[in-house]
């Protein structure tokens, strides 16, 4: 009987397949790639925040100027009170809520996109 001998090679000299480092690993190592990931998240979120605040500044911060420059318009009576009362006493609040809602939606979307890139599969349900 001839014994069967399996002939194998451990291929110790061949190049080993490296798994590419994960984005989360890059951030942990504070490498240049990790820095790009972090900076892009920070910039996106800051830009979003400042955009919402700029809108707030124009819409609400512009009111005193409007009162000064357009007294005829803001003094128009609506339901017996000058328009300025309606704007400051009522319209302002739903506007603030809408701006906040816009920010929360966009900020969560930015974070979801970041999570998908950096750590796929770990996204919030």
């Amino acid at each position: 009987m001839v014994e069967r001998v399996r002939v194998t090679s451990p291929r110790t000299t061949s190049a080993r397949r490296r798994t590419p480092p994960s984005a989360a690993g890059e951030i942990d190592a504070q490498s240049q790639v990790g820095e790009v990931y972090l900076r892009s998240l920070l910039r996106t979120q800051l830009r979003l925040g400042l955009t919402v605040l700029l809108t707030l500044a124009v819409l609400v911060g512009g009111l005193p100027l409007a009162f000064r420059l357009l007294p005829g318009v803001t003094g128009t009576r609506v339901l017996g009170m000058p328009l300025a009362w309606g704007l400051l006493g009522f319209v302002v609040y739903p506007t603030l809520l809408l701006l906040g809602w816009w920010y929360v939606r966009a900020a969560e979307r930015n974070e979801a996109a970041f999570t998908d890139v950096v750590d796929p599969g770990r996204r919030d349900p």
């Binding site: 989360a24 951030i27 972090l38 974070e111 970041f114 999570t115 950096v118 750590d119 770990r122």
Partner: peptide, 17 residues
């Protein structure tokens, strides 16, 4: 500071240090 920025701004779901 960079590690601290990671903590402040990355979502909790992401597994980073």
């Amino acid at each position: 500071v960079t590690r601290f920025m990671v903590r402040l701004h990355t979502p909790e779901a992401v597994g980073v240090d």
